[in-house]
Design a binder for these strands. Structure first.
Lengths: 254, 254
DNA sequence: CGGATGCTTGAGGTCTATCAAAGCGAGTGG
DNA sequence: CCACTCGCTTTGATAGACCTCAAGCATCCG
């Protein structure tokens, strides 16, 4: 009920972490405490505003109900790396579980709305029931798998493959939410994409143009149309030199 | 015996996840079940052997007591990416929490020994106490932070910086275990390092040679001696063109 | 001792970064 | 409403970092 009041039914999520939310609510109810105590509040984040920043104390997890975020970690020298783009239905804040402080910035790319989930209360509520813990394990485990997949992209793919993967990943995530996967509008700049993929914005632009020239996608600035999902997903290897079946010596998998 | 491993008591851990182990034991005891039920068994893994492989069903977490592992994820096309090198005191298997199946291979680089922690039993044991859950959250959270830091390395550093970071990270991790951080023997090949860092083994070799020429380290094949920790850690930017304070446009925080 | 595997180093090619300029779009103010 | 500005995008030319190919050496092991 929590986020069911807004006006954009198509692109909005009732409660992105429905399971977690309802679990939490159920737990809270079971513990005879008001549900509102667990799912504290909805918070609006303006475009360009930070939901939290690296170094901020860890208070809550945030479930995105509407909008789009980017998360970025930073090195001492100031260099930054966008570790991911999160959309409605995604969870933000898991980076802070370990140290009690956030290790990345979360910045809204669009006017967004999140559902605040105070972590300590989740913990307390979960004490009675295993379900909540299981759900959190699942979410953290997914984050680990996602990050490792990203390492594969960054470590072993050419520019064009990275961009192709990026687009097809976005499409897949939209699909998983029941949104049209064929066409959409990018919420981030070429610069952001490039940073995320370890490329410059010019290279991203060129890669997109090239993918379009090959007929895999159609682009008009931020507007993307996916024409050949299969080719995109397969990495879209084109004039690739790299990409030998290679490696990881030592094991099998020659 | 290859790299001076075995029979060196200094390099061994009683139980790497001491906290988790003892917690588990305590919990089990509290639940009036034999402790041996939680920490099932110690298992030996030969050099080159897999502790588990991608696709294997998730049964346990593994705490390394002795030895060295590499973990690698694979793409459909067979390309692999080494996501990390794990040493005594590290935990293996968190990749499988989300899906119930392992998403990477874990291969021993040395004769190793692990402590098996059946996950379902941990869950059950944790039902009563929060401590065990907290410990697991901590460990998973650390994995997330580590992976994201690796994304920063892969996405924004030059070859030489990556190698410098790699070496200094190894040194730090040895230090954290009370081992001499100044000199050690690499358990992995140049090829493995290169794969992990998104480079070729030739480039790794050259980068190491260059770092040695600059006096930051001393190398003799696998034997490493760290001479200038500070310079190494600072990324060791040398003839770097990349690496402007740059980025992550969009938000502000120029 | 010979073979195998891994490491080093060199030469040349290629992908991607860098530098540069022009087109486009959206928001602003006159 | 239009000119203007500013940020984003596209595209080109050039340079540089890293990969590829290749040969020689070191180390390990049967």
């Amino acid at each position: 009920m929590r986020s069911g009041t807004a006006e954009v039914p198509a692109q909005e999520f009732q409660c992105p972490l429905m399971r977690l939310c309802s679990m939490a609510t159920a737990c809270a109810a079971a513990a005879s405490s008001p549900a509102g105590q667990l799912v504290a509040a909805h918070r609006k984040v303006e475009r360009g505003e930070a939901l939290f920043r690296s170094g901020d104390p860890f208070t809550s997890l945030y479930a995105i109900t509407t909008g789009f975020f980017k998360t970025a970690v930073f090195a001492q020298n100031g260099r930054g790396q966008i570790t991911g783009f999160e959309m409605a239905g995604d969870l933000l804040g898991l980076d802070a579980v370990a140290s009690g402080r956030h290790t990345c910035d979360a910045i809204a790319l669009e006017p967004s709305q999140v559902c605040t989930l105070p972590f300590d209360r989740i913990s307390v509520a979960g004490r009675g029931t295993q379900v909540l813990h299981d759900q959190l394990y699942l979410l953290m485990g997914r984050e680990i798998v996602r990050d490792q997949r990203m390492m594969l992209v960054l470590g072993s793919m050419t520019a064009q493959e990275r961009v192709a993967c990026f687009i097809s990943d976005l499409a897949d995530r939209r699909d998983a939410r029941g949104w049209p996967r064929g066409e959409f509008v990018l919420a981030m700049t070429r610069g952001d994409i490039g940073n995320h993929l370890g490329l410059t914005f010019e290279t991203v632009s060129r890669a997109l143009s090239h993918l379009a020239a090959r007929g895999l996608i159609h682009i008009k600035s931020r507007r993307i149309e996916v024409l050949d999902t299969t080719a995109l997903r397969s990495g879209a290897g084109a004039t690739m030199t790299r990409g030998k079946p290679c490696a990881v010596s030592g094991g099998r998998q020659g």
